[in-house]
Design a protein around this nucleic acid. Sequence first.
DNA 1: GACGATGTGTTAGTTTTCTAGCAGGTTGTC
DNA 2: GACAACCTGCTAGAAAACTAACACATCGTC
Lengths: 127, 127
Amino acid sequence: MSVQNGLSRRERQILDILFKHGRATAAVVHADLPDRPSNSAVRAHLRTLEEKGHVKHEAEDLRYVYSPVVQPAKARKSALRHLVETFFEGSPAKAAAALLDSNAARLSDDDLDRLSSLIDKARKEGR
Amino acid sequence: MSVQNGLSRRERQILDILFKHGRATAAVVHADLPDRPSNSAVRAHLRTLEEKGHVKHEAEDLRYVYSPVVQPAKARKSALRHLVETFFEGSPAKAAAALLDSNAARLSDDDLDRLSSLIDKARKEGR
DNA sequence: GACGATGTGTTAGTTTTCTAGCAGGTTGTC
DNA sequence: GACAACCTGCTAGAAAACTAACACATCGTC
């Protein structure tokens, strides 16, 4: 169903790091992982993820660079839906409000303009 | 570190359902769980979650009603931060934009007004 | 009181996750 | 060539997750 099913805790963590970085070597993934597992364990998991089809690797001067197979956009969307569903009663507006509310200080003018125009657009479509 | 660490896949699923419902009996959790595990397994997991301190139960005419121990608000915040971090390069604005963009049709006028005022507020604070 | 439906607790066993350790291959330096 | 410093693959075993099955309690109905 969801993109994130069938994955163990570690696999999920690793996949998240790959989404975050776009592409990364085993060493980078390892460095980003909480509670520092062994490097060997990380590589094993990456291989498993590849077997399961969630990840692919390219050889790049002697090391492997891993990247997610699922389109980031798709994974994003799925993650958003899941979050909205479990924490915001299915209301994207509530989720968006929470985002803006707790992070207002960190929004640039450009960001605000873009959001405004999105809201205007929604207004027009709503009529 | 994060609220969602140290949990297995199933435990995470169960906890998400509790967040979604607020409070729920073992049977409800069971019904909402994908790939239908045994009822007994669900109860065992709930007990484990309680041991770990993520969940509490109250006896309510003969059955147990479970609810998350962590403040929903806190869990929400943590989940949002994680999502923004892994999928939106740490930019809440990008996340909010994605929410509005793909769900414009589902926003009510009230929602839009609320969002607008949040944006205005951010504008003022930004100066 | 006997029965079924529905709830819980606990146990024991399987399956999956997770890991360290070893073997081997390439590159660069001495 | 020997060595260190990287990297990969693989394997066996420990640890944790996951589960079914059984035992027992309560309630309502016959």
